[in-house]
Structures are given as C-alpha cells and as structure tokens.
Design a protein around this nucleic acid. Structure first.
Lengths: 165, 165
DNA sequence: GTTTGCGTTCGCGCGCGCTCAAAGCCATAG
DNA sequence: CTATGGCTTTGAGCGCGCGCGAACGCAAAC
C-alpha cells in the first residue's frame, strides 16, 4: 500500500495482461472522471499519495489550489486532472524538476505546445528505454533462476535447462 | 554516459528489439567472460560504475577483494562475476539491503539455496510488475502525445487520432 | 619533479517526500 | 456544556537510499 495504488487500479482496469486495447487506454487515461470539488483527503485517496505529498506538489508550484472559508484546500476538476497527469509522470520516473518545467510551459500559454510535445516525446523514449532495460534484466534473472546452481556465478552452466521466456 | 554503460552494451548485444533469443541471453549473461585479475579501474569501466561505487560495495560487505603488494585492489574472476550479478540486480531496482541479504545467504553455504531462489523469484515478479507499470505509463504518454491539445487536460479529446501502439 | 592512479576517511548532496509541532474548526459522546 | 478525537492549516526540519567530493598520502611512471 505504498504509493502505487493508482497504478494498481490501472493495472486491474487494464486486466493485467491484455494487449492494451484502445478501450483500455481510454479507461486508463480517463481514470479520473472528476466529479466536482474535492478535499485533500479525497484527492490523496484517489491518487494514492499522501496529503503531505499534495501540499508538497503545491509548494513546488505544480498546481494551484483554492481554499474554502476555513482555509482548507478545495481541488477543482482542473487541479485534479493536472494532478492525475503529474502523478502519472512521477510514477513513470519523470523528476520533479522536469515536471516543474513542463508546468511552467503550460502556464506560459499555447505558444509552448511544441516544446511540451518534445518533452513528452523524450519522456516516451526514456520509458521505452527503461522497459527494454528491465526486459533484459528480467531475462537475466529468469535465466539465473532457470540455471540456478547457487553462488553468484558461474551464471553459465546448465544451458539445456534454459527455458524460453 | 551515466551509470548504464553495461546495460547500453547489453542492449547493443541483444540488438535492440530482437525477441531475446536464447543465444542473446547467453551472450547477455556471459557479458563478463572474465579474463583474469583486474584493477578497480578496469572493473569500474567494465560495469560502468565508478571506483567509488566499487569501494562502497566492498565496504557494504557485498564482495571481498584481495590486495596486491601495494595495497591496491585486485579483482579476481569470482569477484567480478559477483559484481556483474550485483550491478545487474541494482540496475533492475533491487535495493542494497536485499543484496546484502542475498550475499549473506551465498556466504552461508548451499543450505540457503531455496531462500536465494525465493529472492530471485520475488525480484522477478517485481521486475515484471514494474515493466507492466511502465508499459501502462508509456501507453498513457503516447495517448497524450497523439491527442495532444495542450494543457494537462482534458486528456480525452480526439479519440479518433489515437494510434495503436 | 610532477603527473598519474590508487588508497582511506569524513562528510556532503540530491531527490523526494515524511515527521513533528502548534494551532484551528467540526463532530459526536458523555 | 465540555471533551475527545479527527480533520485541516503552516513551517521548519529530518530521514533514507545511494553514492559522490574533497582532502590527504604513497608509489610508480613520464
């Protein structure tokens, strides 16, 4: 129950191993069909981050949040949508610094759209690369499991028992 | 040229998008066909980590390294193989703590083989899960790129232009 | 000689939040 | 009516995982 509830639900939504149909992606990107104004606790629950983290994001300038008459934060639909986006990017490894830059571009108006797209394209490439790295690590780990002879080496032993991934 | 040279070379070795043939995995797991004793600089270069990091791993008890008459570290084949394994696990996200535990099991003899296998299996699951998370993030990012209308929302717009991954 | 490469130790830094403290408002419970 | 607990606010400071930097010494090589 760390910080991956959103992703857990997203994985459930998608069905764990389907080939990512367009419909699934639609549901995924639509995860937050924001109803209306929300409290910090509700948003935190929705995104499975802590209220602390939400305040931290706000201090970092990633999102502006209105207050009610008690001084309590009130998250409107736009804020929530932005936070959904932000947590998705965080989860896929985009650092805070880049998110701050991205948001500054958003706030700077439509003229920055190309640069924003560049950022997304670059981030896409980073994710792809990371997936390939992990795929490779997975293969190595599975290979080691399959040929396990103990110790940390020799790593190469009973090649015959290597099973196809 | 950060800390992913090993992985970069591994990706080259594999060919960037092949379906991970058994032969490719063999080459991958065989990345270090260790010749003989190596200096810290050579090992650092091989694994693309810094000498600092190697000394840090040693201090952490992950590997024992002999010294020559000058007090300089001499990495024998076993140490290098172990470090190849360790860096692979680090790169795929296994924390130092777990690596220390794993190594303690290795040093404790053959009786701990089952527990070691359990660790590898669990780590395999973690990698798989992480890959699925990233795949999802990738889909969301690509979706956002395809339907890009600016801002951080609405996220759902020109569904028609969504291209299949 | 002075540049290179290695050794050690201590401490620092970064990214990312979390913890703690002090205080205010709301509810339900005695 | 008070009280107790639970939520919120702000701000400053702490912590963790993982190394990196800086300072200094010693031996070899140019």
């Amino acid at each position: 129950m760390s910080t991956d509830n959103l992703m857990a639900r997203a994985l459930e939504t998608v069905g764990d191993d389907g080939p990512l149909s367009v419909e699934a992606i639609h549901r995924l990107t639509n995860l937050a069909d924001v109803p209306g104004p929300m409290t910090i606790a509700e948003v935190a629950d929705l995104l499975d981050i802590t209220p602390h983290t939400l305040r931290y994001y706000e201090r970092a300038g990633l999102v502006e949040v209105a207050r009610d008459s008690y001084g309590h934060r009130v998250y409107d639909a736009e804020a929530v949508r932005r936070l959904v986006f932000l947590t998705r990017m965080r989860l896929s490894g985009m650092p805070m610094r880049d998110l701050q830059h991205y948001i500054s571009l958003v706030d700077a108006g439509q003229g920055t759209v190309p640069e924003r797209l560049d950022m997304l394209l670059e981030h896409r490439d980073i994710i792809r690369r990371r997936i390939r790295e992990l795929t490779l690590s997975l293969a190595a780990t599975e290979y080691k499991i399959a040929t396990y002879g103990g110790s940390t080496g020799p790593d190469v032993a009973v090649l015959d028992t290597a099973t196809q991934p």
